[in-house]
Design a protein around this nucleic acid. Sequence first.
DNA 1: CCTCACCTATTGGTGACACCATTATGCCGT
DNA 2: ACGGCATAATGGTGTCACCAATAGGTGAGG
Lengths: 232, 232
Amino acid sequence: MLHSPVLEALGRRITGGALPAGATLTLDGIGAEFGVSRTVAREAMRLLEGLGLVRSGPRVGIVVLPHDAWNVLDPRVIEWRLAGPGRASQLRSLTELRQAVEPLAASCAARGATAAVRDELVATARRMRELGEAGKGDGEEFLALDIQLHELLMRSSGNELFSALADVVAVVISGRTHLGLMPAYPEPEALDAHEAVALAVARGDGAAAEEAMARIVREVRGALGEGPAGKG
Amino acid sequence: MLHSPVLEALGRRITGGALPAGATLTLDGIGAEFGVSRTVAREAMRLLEGLGLVRSGPRVGIVVLPHDAWNVLDPRVIEWRLAGPGRASQLRSLTELRQAVEPLAASCAARGATAAVRDELVATARRMRELGEAGKGDGEEFLALDIQLHELLMRSSGNELFSALADVVAVVISGRTHLGLMPAYPEPEALDAHEAVALAVARGDGAAAEEAMARIVREVRGALGEGPAGKG
DNA sequence: CCTCACCTATTGGTGACACCATTATGCCGT
DNA sequence: ACGGCATAATGGTGTCACCAATAGGTGAGG
């Protein structure tokens, strides 16, 4: 897959703003810069086109599109934007989406999760509490548990669209930690809420699961600041 | 763009189940069937790969992936699946997503919408009521207004991720009507709720907008049946 | 019957070519 | 001098022939 590095580089350049809307590229230019043939450059361009980042036409070259044409829900675009400037703003937008989706997903999971998943959720929440109360709430292990719990919930919601958003949630949680936006040690209320979600799902109480998850996400959003999510 | 018809046809075939997971294709086969060169077939395949529908490797050909690898949030995939069998199930999944997102989007719009948008929302809701009470709630004009109102709300939420979901909401609303899942004439409560959302946004009352939008989506979901959204 | 080596099918990648749409240039007429 | 139309240059679109790499089947041999 020779086109992957080209796709990555151009994707990051565009989403990062280094190639602003209206900028033009040519296949020969891309080929020359990356040392690939026109065919490979064309393939990378097609992928970019599929993501809504560029549009190509005869004589005009490959034109970078304004950001409101981008497939901002595509995991690749999300990852690129989280790695570039404006990641804080992107994180706010994503957190708002989490705020919308996760409570309902938790409610659905309470209805549809398998017995195994219910057990695992409870076990995960318990381990989170143990780690958190042992003062290890800032490590990678705690982060992994946090992600696992949220991902399990999304994937057990019985709604494939929510499942598809599980990756997004994972990257948001991880991004928040690695950007230093987490409290150094998880607050007791957060631990309580995570455990409450797990227990509510385990006993099939959708309303309680939804409420507890809403508490979690509200807290997350509060930590990110109340301002409206920007466009960057 | 010679590859478009190929992409369309194969995309629909895969998402529709005519090409089940594990089925294999070859570039030459695609080229022969559609009368295009291998290059074009390869480009179509790349796009399909970008959508998570297939994976290609030397000697193994192009393998159709199981549906949990699909980019189910991509507008193209959504459209294809809505056009194929299992559209009712797909509509349920999408409606669940609407249920999650639209209330929060309405709340955000109440904070962030421009004065022009607020006016247009109110005017749109008013025209919807007029049409509905005139017995024309089943026509294309009413549908267009309905879509316009929801789209305006999503796009004015100030969150680009919600904006990206506006297309999805539009296609869901339109699909629901054209699949005959709408009541022949809109119920008075629906008209009330739409107007309530518009007025709440107009006066900047986020909580009321959220509550009214939740009423709308709950009603929609009720009409689709309460069963869990399937996978097809 | 199992194992291993080889063979072949099929994708990955390249370069050259013809084609065509679009844009810009420049000419000509008013 | 200005505006409209013809023409040329530019750069994507599509095809072809070719080579490299690889994976999976096949057949021979133990």
